[in-house]
């Protein structure tokens, strides 16, 4: 089966790539585009480490085909900071020590950003349920929840 030629936009940059018809968006990002900030924890949509946005919608990139990126806007962790200025969520994760090993961090940041776009003033319970698809094995989630709540407060004030 021949490869498909896909034109898409990743973090605002126009991108073209070839991929197999059955190749996941996660593999395309990691293996073809060198965007290894998107992590693979399970390959089955259970852990959320590969979270990205497609036209603003939060998805597990392991459950999306690379070919589906055609004509879409893809957002990954690499696009979250603007130049040297970190996103408020990134800054709050550092301040609150909301990461230990850090492997789930990109996915959680992408997911949290999507949450705050949809709901700028979430309750703790809303944050916990929104992030229930993002597994973290190190932190027990406590500092992650605090960092997201703190970021939401700061972003509302800004």
């Amino acid at each position: 089966m021949s490869q498909l030629q896909i034109s898409t936009t990743v973090n605002g940059d126009p991108v073209e790539f070839l991929c197999e018809p059955d190749e996941s968006l996660m593999d395309v990002l990691r293996d073809r585009l060198g965007l290894t900030g998107t992590k693979e924890g399970c390959g089955s949509g259970d852990c959320g480490a590969c979270s990205v946005t497609v036209d603003g919608r939060l998805v597990c990139s392991c459950l999306v085909l690379g070919a589906e990126a055609q004509g879409r806007q893809i957002g990954t962790i690499e696009g979250m900071a603007k130049g040297e200025k970190l996103h408020v969520l990134q800054q709050k994760f550092l301040e609150h020590a909301a990461l230990q090993c850090g492997i789930c961090t990109p996915g959680i940041l992408v997911a949290a950003e999507a949450l705050l776009k949809e709901n700028p003033d979430p309750t703790e319970t809303e944050v916990r349920y929104w992030l229930a698809g993002n597994l973290c094995r190190c932190t027990g989630y406590d500092k992650i929840i605090r960092a997201v709540m703190d970021a939401a407060t700061e972003m509302r004030g800004a």
Binding site: T36, K39, E40, M80, T105, L109
Partner: peptide
């Protein structure tokens, strides 16, 4: 680690 630059085993 918050920007996705950190290189893990599979990276």
């Amino acid at each position: 680690k918050v920007t996705g630059r950190a290189r893990y085993g599979a990276d």
